[in-house]
């Protein structure tokens, strides 16, 4: 009898959580308005998929480049800048798009083993990657890569603006990322503790909150996302890295043997760059991810860009 009571308690508690959560959820339809518009435009190109499928490895845990819209189902639920780009490439190449979500590391393994044709997941160019993959020409995802910043706890907001200000402090970063390269290049010769790498950005943010590190190097766009969810605790320091041209942009990874696809992808990317096809995408994704409002970035409620 006692046990049945216990079970009832647990079931009731779960039911209450469900009920409360259900009350609290509200529609996010508006946030995706601009994004949906861009996606529809891309798809209106009318590709027939005559050239087979384009299998894309993507790591959707990195808003606003790659993330999940939990209100949607299946492949549609994976959204973000890279998804728009993947759709664009599929249209240009006249192929059917298949998204394969997996962890960042697995993306690279998928391309190497031929399980995915291409990895599009906010990859930066690095020397090691260039040795193991055919790397596409670059694409520009807003300020996500061009601006590389350092975030800190709220009380230090705006106080650290020069590299010398960081002497004697500990600065963290995501391992094997562009930020690691930048931190090492910038602070390598100085008395700055750069010993701590993190497996993902979320963990690094927790370390910052727990004061295990004083600063965290991030791409500006990710910084926006982080601060949007913790504006009372975290802020930008005011310091931005000097980013060499080669790091500024994102690239796609393709299997070394697949030069044919590389050529096609490069042609499509160059066309997009020249014709400024993706100029509004990044902002739309920021809105979608809840980082900025439509109004702030100059969209009307239907997702039309009305001012810059």
């Amino acid at each position: 009898m006692k046990n049945i009571n216990k079970f009832l308690c647990i079931v009731l508690a779960l039911a209450m959580i469900l009920a409360l959560s259900a009350c609290g959820s509200k529609s996010d339809a508006k946030l995706s308005a601009a994004y949906d518009k861009y996606l529809a435009e891309i798809k209106a190109n009318g590709a027939t998929g005559a050239n087979g499928t384009l299998t894309v490895a993507i790591s959707p845990d990195f808003a606003p480049m790659d993330f999940y819209d939990v209100a949607k189902n299946g492949d549609d639920a994976i959204v973000g800048f890279d998804v728009l780009l993947a759709n664009y490439l599929a249209q240009e190449l006249d192929m059917t798009l298949v998204l394969k979500p997996m962890s960042f590391d697995a993306c690279m393994a998928a391309v190497q083993t031929g399980n995915a044709d291409i990895a599009i997941s906010g990859f930066s160019w690095t020397f090691e990657r260039s040795q193991n993959f055919a790397i596409s020409d670059y694409y520009i995802a807003g300020d996500n890569e061009t601006e590389q910043s350092v975030i800190c706890l709220k009380e230090n907001e705006g106080k650290f603006t020069k590299a010398e200000d960081f002497v004697g402090y500990k600065i963290g970063y995501q391992g094997a990322s562009l930020q690691q390269v930048l931190v090492e290049e910038t602070f390598g010769g100085m008395d700055v503790d750069i010993s701590q790498a993190y497996v993902d950005l979320g963990t690094a943010v927790e370390a910052l909150k727990a004061k295990q590190i004083d600063f965290l190097a991030v791409a500006h766009g990710n910084g926006d996302s982080i601060i949007a969810n913790a504006s009372d605790a975290i802020a930008f320091t005011g310091f931005d890295f000097e980013v060499a041209e080669i790091y500024k942009n994102n690239v796609c990874l393709i299997n070394k043997d697949n030069t044919e696809l590389l050529d096609l992808v490069n042609a499509a990317l160059n066309k997009a760059l020249v014709e400024e096809i993706y100029s509004g995408w990044y902002d739309a994704c920021k809105v979608y991810a809840g980082i900025s409002t439509l109004d702030e970035l100059g969209f009307d409620d239907e997702g039309n860009k009305i001012k810059d």
Binding site: F62, A63, Y68, M102, S103, G202, E206
Partner: peptide, 21 residues
């Protein structure tokens, strides 16, 4: 690791959106 949808995937998805690890 392959985002099949179970609880840990749910964690990855939501953490990826909110950065509230």
């Amino acid at each position: 690791t392959f985002f099949v949808g179970e609880l840990m995937t749910a964690y990855l998805k939501v953490k990826g959106n909110t950065y509230l690890t």
